[in-house]
Write a protein that binds this DNA or RNA. Sequence first.
DNA 1: AACCCGTGGAT
DNA 2: TATCCAAGGGT
Length: 378
Amino acid sequence: MPNYFSYNQSMTTLLTWSPTKIKAFRQALLTWYDANRRNLPWRVDHDPYHVMVSELMLQQTQVNTVIPYYQRFMAAFPTVAALAAAPESAVLKAWEGLGYYSRARNLHRAAKQLMADYGGQWPTTAAGLRELAGIGPYTAGAIASIAFNQPEPAIDGNAFRVFARLFCIDADITKPATRQLFADLIRQLIDPQRPGDFNQAVMDLGSSYMRAKDPDAAHSPVAAFDESLRTDTVLAYPVKTKKAKPQVVQYFALAIHSPAGWLLEQRPSTGLLANLWLMPLVARAAWVKQPLAEQITLAAAEFSQRAGHTVTLRAAGLPLVRHTFTHRQWQLTILTAETKAFALDFLPAQWVPSLSATNLALPTVQKKLTQAIQEGQA
DNA sequence: AACCCGTGGAT
DNA sequence: TATCCAAGGGT
């Protein structure tokens, strides 16, 4: 069966719907949305700051996960000006546990841009919004349409899935070039009177009747427009290539304790968990074939050199801590050291009296380490 | 273009 | 348990 769209064809000539059908689609979608829209904390108004914070948090993150973070973030940073004035450490602490921490740093950067470069005046077009840190094609379209009533598509995973099914589009949505295909289509479908509601309705549709797993396309408000339903191919869309498995990396995690507390090291300002705080790690890859006792001696030597202070490390006898990121799985073997409170002149590090009550932003993997250590002490 | 960047829920 | 995935952006 031929698809309505193929990878190298122009969308303009392939939208087979009549103007009448397009209007009927908009009405079916928006009527359903008006009666069934989710009540979400960032939907109480169309304030661009509220939209921006919610959209950044919602990138690759589920709605239910975001809600409490959004509430706390708004309480801590009620306005763009407040966010711009805050230290990055406070912003990261508010983001702690939400993941993809570059989003928090970009959001902070965008707030500073708005205050410093734009005099607090928001750009109101998608192209203008794209100049702000952390705002890509999706988020620019979302803010432009929701906050500024611009007829811009907001093409997230929901929109890809919804329109791939409605039109049986088999282009691979993981390929950047495919976005243009969908954008050309959605620009013709979007309701020029209510673009923000149109985009949000597509998202609500994509998280309910047209969800990825266990959809209920037959009862969707746009079932009559759904070519994949008509051809019984709903689950064939969208087409996407699979992700690679995360690679395993082994480290020693150093639980170094002194009268001043536990030692936490700040991660580098780029890369994984940038600027967050974590017990010092020592890579084991170069030593994997050596006996454990030898590895511990080598790890102590390496860390002592880094810290400018000699420590003696011991196996803690605690369970291996595993933590999986998008592209890596860490396997952490905890080593312990009891030491005096040496000066931290050579490490971006701090002594913290309590691992569970600190103003430093801790990634989830550190919380797993903390839990393993506390259970070992109990 | 291909790869990097977190986390928790669902199955 | 393993896998997928959820309102993507940066480089």
